[in-house]
Design a protein around this nucleic acid. Structure first.
Lengths: 242, 242
DNA sequence: ATTTACGATATGTATGTACATAATTGTCAA
DNA sequence: TTGACAATTATGTACATACATATCGTAAAT
């Protein structure tokens, strides 16, 4: 550090921002300056090259690692990921919003609503204590009066006590939960299946007809919030663009 | 270095880590100490409370904002998000990797391979010029010798000329493309459908049986790379954990 | 009344520094 | 040859500090 003078302390010029560094690194990957699998210079070197602090390079690289562009290991270094962009983002909309976004009129009806002790299968899936009270709600969602989604939901009442007082006359359980029960973890299981007798009846299709099934469980920290099975007719498309 | 304060300089105890703060904030949300929509104390206050530097609180809050748990605005503050975590990440693995990850043995076979002029339907979908040369490949992927995926793929030869010389004897088109044809845009369309006659035959199911269909198109900037339809038997699960 | 200007404030980011931690490499002995 | 163990090294995280920037409320100007 011969001429420290101008850098001094405090924030320097904006060109050194971690964003600039991120972009420059992406550029080098795009232009094949750094090939997939290749080890790139260390933070110290890059900091020297970009004329910034190591921490700044660290942040740039950390964020690139977060989205899977590079892979980092201590004592080893940072390398360009072999298979970049290997994940898609799927939006998780509220059913109502999803229907309305297609220009259709949304309506839902609650088919059943019971407060019960957690059944064993559910207990194992969500790691609930034996005998925990849960709310079981079954709903049918419509788009322009045609069945859009059959929803079979279990809610952990210990986690969301306020929902016990909800009538679900105007706001669906789905929407109420989205608005009132934040979660930090989510597990989605997408599959195709043959409609069960009940599902077929609800959705107005034949038994065994293909249906699109989303099973979703959510937690806040370690506390289970809800487990829901959402069944759509096979005309349903789940689309994501990246 | 003269003792600056009791903490001194450098890293302090681990209890101050930004992870601890993230967890504590999540706990307060879970325990309704802070409700959705509520404004929480400023970084300065939280830093004082947790006995750490403001930057540490900043990182914790920033990462919570990244996953949509809180929303932050300058001059305003940080509030608990009303509609938290509205997207899931779906991993897009190479078929071989996916099969091997389940402990099964992977194998594939190329069913057909033709260089043709782009058919009209495909042309419209990918925005290709009329008469553009495309490579049409059909593959069957196996897990432990049972059909896992039927792949029907179209590749824009103008975008990926090198693929013309590939025999696909050891490396599948899927894997070759992942390794050699970077893309910047991707569109995924997930759905459930009834197996066509051909699909049923390929996958060893009956015609009309539910199958899980992934249709994916990729581009590099505005240049179409490939359009692929991947059909799985209904035992297939696409799982994502966030 | 509407617009403009400005100050206050909370978050955003950069810097230098210090120590923590994981993983590889080298060394030496069993 | 192998195993144990220390040295090395790149990333990981924390701190104090300083300045940047967006945006709100308020007051002055139109």
């Amino acid at each position: 550090m011969s001429d420290v003078t101008q850098t001094g302390t405090g924030a320097a010029a904006q060109p050194n921002s971690f964003r600039t560094i991120k972009t420059e690194i992406l550029r080098r990957i795009r232009d094949r300056v750094w090939q997939p699998g290749e080890l790139i210079p260390g933070e110290e070197d890059l900091a020297r090259e970009f004329g910034c602090a190591r921490v700044t390079v660290n942040r740039a690289l950390r964020e690139l690692a977060d989205i899977g562009i590079v892979e980092r290991k201590r004592r080893v270094g940072t390398r360009i990921a072999e298979h970049p962009l290997r994940e898609a983002r799927l939006e998780i909309p509220v059913v109502r919003t999803e229907v309305e976004a297609r220009g259709a009129q949304y309506r839902f009806s609650v088919l059943s609503r019971d407060e019960v002790e957690v059944p064993e299968t559910l207990r194992a899936r969500l790691e609930l204590p034996p005998g925990a009270p849960v709310l079981h709600v079954r709903c049918l969602h419509f788009a322009d009066n045609r069945p859009w989604q059959f929803e079979d939901r279990w809610i952990n009442l210990a986690a969301v006590p306020d929902i016990a007082g909800q009538s679900f006359e105007t706001v669906s359980p789905n929407e109420w939960l989205v608005r009132n029960a934040p979660f930090s973890e989510m597990e989605n299981d997408l599959s195709a299946a043959g409609a069960t007798t009940e599902e077929a009846e609800m959705l107005g299709v034949s038994r065994g007809d293909p249906v699109f099934v989303i099973e979703r469980a959510t937690w806040l920290l370690d506390q289970p919030i809800t487990l829901v099975r959402m069944v759509h007719p096979s005309s349903y498309r789940m689309i994501s663009r990246v």
